[in-house]
Design a binder for these strands. Sequence first.
RNA 1: CGGGGCGUGGCGCAGCUUGGUAGCGCAUCUGGUUUGGGACCAGAGGGUCGCAGGUUCGAAUCCAGUCGCCCCGACCA
Length: 570
Amino acid sequence: MKSYMRMSKLYAPTLKEDPAEAELASHKLLLRAGMIRKTAAGLYSYLPLAWRSLLKIETVIREEMEAIDAQEIQVPVIVPAELWQDSGRWNAYGPELLRLKDRHEREFVFGPTHEETFTDLIRHELRSYKQLPVTLYQIQDKFRDEMRPRFGLMRGREFIMKDAYSFDATVEGMQASYNAEKDAYARICERCGLRALPVVADSGQIGGDTSVEFMALAEAGEAELVWCDCGFAADVEAATVGIAIEEGPGTECEKIATPCEGSIASLAAFMGVSERACRKSFAIIAEDGTPVLCLLPGDHELNDVKAEHAFGHYDVMDEEQMAAYGLVKGYMGPIGADARVRVVADIALKDSKSWLIGANEEGYHIKGAQPGRDFEVVEWLDLASAKEGDACPKCGRALHSARGIEVSQVFQLGTKYSEAMGATFADENGVERPFQMGCYGIGVSRTLAAVVEQHHDEHGICWPVCVAPYEVEIVPLETADDLVWPAAEGIAKGLVDAGIEVVVDDRKERAGVKFADADLMGFPYQVVCGKRAVKNGNVEVKDRATGERVEVPIDEVVAYLSEKVVSQRL
RNA sequence: CGGGGCGUGGCGCAGCUUGGUAGCGCAUCUGGUUUGGGACCAGAGGGUCGCAGGUUCGAAUCCAGUCGCCCCGACCA
């Protein structure tokens, strides 16, 4: 028989002060509300309230997965090294991968994701196209040995992830599985109360060609994205956008003295042109050791992810290297650089005919330089990070920028893993083919943090009903009073009978303490039972999110709250 | 991993510069007074000063080391 939780029994030690270690609202509040505790850097214990919310998020996920015929399984957290060697990721994945040995010196990894395990599982079982498609998923702890775990649950080393993998016979099939999963992810975000945007993403370490991330919009988000009124949205690292070109002054190639600091801002100010009319030079050493000079519109940055695609794992040149290649810090440019330097430029600059560039001489720039005439660009690449104001690749209008928390991501993998691991099935003609795969992750614990990030105020958390640890808190101000306590208890029982999750603050604390904790823990509705109101047959119902309070007759409050709560459960 | 900062009762901090054997607020326990927005009075318990060395008659304090944590950078759910 279900009952209500008594605050006096609830293991949720609250903190009056902000913990010194926390920076973000979600981190501070989850700690202060007694929901999580740190065990070590990036490792958190979930206390009862957090666990209840996590289970609700998982329930939403399970319902949406069931709706698209994905089946839940559970594979071991630990993965034998051979599987990772098979896929090639044993070497490709960096120090983020936690490797371990058993007593027989056999090597294993603590799974940061489970493409290998799932692929290995099905390669023994799925042999025919008739058995496809299949999507399997699990909800499990993952471990990634992050260089710098931070922000509480936002970037832990161990975290809860839902990971799904689809196996199809054809590319079209894979796309259908991918789209079903993507649509489910949008519904999951919505049901969890997240304002999230699907954005075009880079596929990163996972591999494959097409990927979308769901970004929960939040100032505290670590990711930057651009979006357009037409519906287009992309991670700045993945966005290929239009950058309108501004020409530099003049068309004749001429060296000019520029007695200003070696920065684009000061150069633009000195020349009386916009930063974009200047050309920014960025010197790096590509993975193969080639020195590369990247030329960009002056107001744009070199995008790390795009640069890695183009140059492999590159290093920024230090001053010594610059000097060795004839480049002068602050005044770099393609003219006068060593012949070994490979000059590349952002694709946006391809039609530009007047470049304001460094002269590779302290205090001098060159204006009116023209590629093809005054210097050579060997390759035109997409290198610049997108930013606010760039043109939408879909409709051409100016893009807006925003920050977000990446709560989930979907990938089309194609045959990357199935081919590497020899996972094949027989098609209609009896020909062995590799599976067309997709993979789909949701950061479950990160989702919890994102919800708090989006739903809080200066007093605490404001849980959306769908993921709230409890739905209603009853606050009897006098636990000894022979009117107040029975009224509170009666309402609690009535709500429990109506299927509502209830906490009763039965502690012998002063009103202020109870109110403060109630606001901090942030259950969606508070029922305040005070002496005067109860004597008149009323209680006060407070909506945590809006702060709105209404007096409701005691004998109507169960119906009143049931209606509100149930309608918001989603 | 590079740069910066911090480790002192459960939590938040002072003390360190200028060595002399540890203090404040909150929390906890007891008794009393309070009781609609984090009460008050009285009393009590609780600290190998991160760890292990060195200097010194004497180290929380000075020196060198080590471990841990936090913040900024590069990676990701």
